[in-house]
């Protein structure tokens, strides 16, 4: 690939990476469950878009498969499975009791993004031969931090599940820039694993809703050491 084409590909990848980060930030602060789900879909779409750019730029069929699998599982299958498993009623809800306020959550998220960028630098210094690593590695790490933060500050089960999936997308966003050829078995297995995980966690959430009358799992705090 010529230098100009590579620069163009990097610009596209950078654009998708920025949207990837913004969608992750949106999941942290969005109140509406339906909005959270749409933001997650956008997040996964940006992962697919980045994988397509890298597939073309690096002439990697494996990354093409990653893009296709990510799109079909996370953008299409996961939302459908989740709505089926948890019931559509959950998505009409508005979460009003975040652990932290939105401004404070945003402030911490900015700090996390900065920390992730710093933490990725030692690795970037040795991964010099990969032209997209400087974009994808810090971005993926930021998404992982955002996902973990979402799990911590959101009380609604669906939002926590989105946090977990954002962590997984973050891991893949980082790795597609450095690992271009996972075996096809691993790719297929990953494609099967995510919907199964979402199905099981979604059904678990439905059971929680049926037994406790709410899917606000952040309020489930009965299991502690009793004196």
């Amino acid at each position: 690939m010529s230098g100009h084409a590579l620069e163009l590909a990097q610009a596209f990848d950078g654009f998708f990476a920025a949207l990837f980060v913004l969608a992750g930030l949106g999941v942290i602060v969005a109140r509406q469950m339906r909005g959270t789900l749409y933001l997650f879909m956008l997040h996964a779409l940006m992962l697919s878009a980045s994988a397509i750019v890298l597939a073309i730029a690096l002439h990697s069929a494996h990354l093409g498969w990653v893009a296709l699998i990510t799109f079909s599982t996370k953008v299409v299958a996961v939302p459908l499975v989740l709505i089926w498993a948890t019931g559509s009623k959950v998505y009409g809800r508005r979460e009003v009791d975040h652990v932290l306020s939105i401004p404070l959550s945003l402030l911490i998220a900015v700090g996390l993004a900065f920390a992730a960028w710093i933490m990725s630098q030692p690795l970037l210094q040795v991964i010099t031969a990969q032209p997209f690593a400087a974009i994808n590695l810090p971005t993926g790490l930021i998404a992982m931090f955002f996902g973990a933060f979402t799990v911590t500050v959101r009380r609604e089960g669906v939002a926590q599940l989105m946090g977990l999936l954002i962590m997984e997308s973050g891991a893949f966003f980082a790795s597609i820039a450095i690992v271009h050829d996972l075996t096809i078995i691993a790719e297929i297995a990953a494609a099967v694993d995510v919907p199964i995980a979402v199905l099981v966690i979604g059904l678990l959430l439905r059971s929680i809703g049926a037994v406790t009358g709410s899917t606000r799992v952040g309020h489930m705090v009965t299991l502690r050491e009793r004196r």
Binding site: I201, L204, I208, V211, T212, M220, L223
Partner: peptide, 16 residues
């Protein structure tokens, strides 16, 4: 409720 709480914590923490 307690069993479901335990299962949720288990799934969320170990999946993270």
């Amino acid at each position: 409720a307690e069993a479901l709480e335990a299962a949720w914590k288990y799934v969320v923490l170990t999946t993270m």
